[in-house]
């Protein structure tokens, strides 16, 4: 008996995958959405549906995040307004590119290639960050100083006494919006570093503004794709059911485990995601079924491995066990 057009097994797979993604989202504060679209791509969903459903999932997850953080974080409404305008324009642009590519039959290939590049770059940066965060912090401060020294009108003053060019803020939002509309990602993993390291916004303000921003842009992106019937609602519903629970587990684990201890696994997961999408494309292009299987195993296996490492590390801390074989494996 199918549930809303999905077999019970598929519902179980999506709820389970949502649970893993939720644990990662709750623990790292990012890393949820940009695994959903690749996962739907490797499972054979059309690229428009994979991107549209990814954005709808981003919206649902960020609503839950906003509810959790409503008493924490600070929001800079001026920054949020400029970013919202810029990202709305960007998302619309990104969506038009996807539908144009879809009409030429090139969408699957180009979106997959973009994902391979994006996951590889973010994965390598995270890996570098895990190995030496002091150097990255210093580079970030230098960049923010340089950006704030550019006086392109109109200049705006943000919370934390940060004075920066409104034009630059708009341009940053536009680029992230295009990526969001093109790839079906929320953009949190780009917005947070852009606001903190690029504009010099304090971390607490960046977190609050980021969540508000992603909720609005996720809703707009999902709305635009849903207008074309490109959101698989049962898939989004099942993923959310799992991720809402996972996010609680992941957020609980942050009280027990240092993020840096798991960061190496997280970077490896992003790189595995990149290889998975590449393997799927090669498998489809050359008719090699084994590569398709490899891509599915890689993307789901990586999510299982990293969320498993988070949960295991938290259990080890709860039991004050740092010497067991399994517990030693959780630190990178």
């Amino acid at each position: 008996m199918d549930i809303l057009g999905l077999t019970p097994m598929m519902v179980g797979i999506f709820v389970g995958f949502g649970l893993l993604i939720g644990i990662l989202f709750g623990f790292f504060g990012m890393g949820g959405s940009f695994l959903v679209t690749p996962a739907l791509l490797v499972m054979g969903y059309p690229s428009t549906v994979a991107v549209g459903s990814g954005l709808a999932f981003v919206f649902g997850t960020s609503v839950i995040g906003a509810l959790r953080h409503r008493d924490h974080g600070q929001v800079d409404y001026k920054l949020a307004l400029i970013m919202t305008l810029a990202m709305t324009v960007g998302i619309e642009g990104g969506k038009r590119v996807v539908f144009f590519l879809d009409s030429t039959g090139m969408a699957d290939l180009i979106i997959s290639v973009a994902y391979v590049g994006l996951l590889a770059v973010v994965g390598l940066f995270t890996l570098r960050d895990a190995w030496g965060s002091e150097e990255t912090d210093s580079t970030g401060r230098d960049l923010a100083d340089r950006v704030q020294s550019l006086h392109i009108p109109p200049m705006v003053t943000l919370r934390g006494d940060v004075r920066v060019s409104g034009t630059i803020v708009f341009a940053v939002g536009l680029v992230i919006g295009v990526l969001s509309g093109f790839l079906g990602v929320g953009g949190g993993f780009l917005l947070m570093p852009a606001m903190m390291y690029g504009l010099g916004v304090p971390a607490a303000v960046a977190v609050g503004t980021d969540i508000l921003q992603i909720t609005i842009s996720g809703a707009f992106g999902a709305f635009r794709y849903a207008q074309s019937g490109s959101v698989a609602l049962p898939v989004v519903g099942a993923l959310l059911a799992g991720s809402a629970l996972g996010a609680r587990i992941g957020a609980g684990a942050t009280q027990l485990v240092e993020e840096d201890a798991i960061k190496g696994y997280f970077a490896a997961m992003l790189l595995a995601g990149s290889v998975a999408v590449a393997a799927k494309e090669l498998g489809t292009a050359y008719g090699i079924g084994l590569l398709n299987t490899v891509s599915i195993v890689l993307i789901f296996g990586a999510a299982v491995l990293v969320s498993g490492a988070v949960v295991l590390a938290a259990i080890c801390r709860l039991r004050n066990d740092g010497t067991g074989t399994w517990c030693r494996l959780t630190t990178t």
């Binding site: 649902g60 509810l67 019937g229 609602l233 519903g237 959310l240």
Partner: peptide, 17 residues
């Protein structure tokens, strides 16, 4: 359909929370 989709996702997110 798009408004209904967004509404359903929002309602599910709040209910799950």
């Amino acid at each position: 359909e798009a408004i209904a989709t967004i509404g359903l996702v929002l309602a599910e997110a709040i209910a799950l929370y």
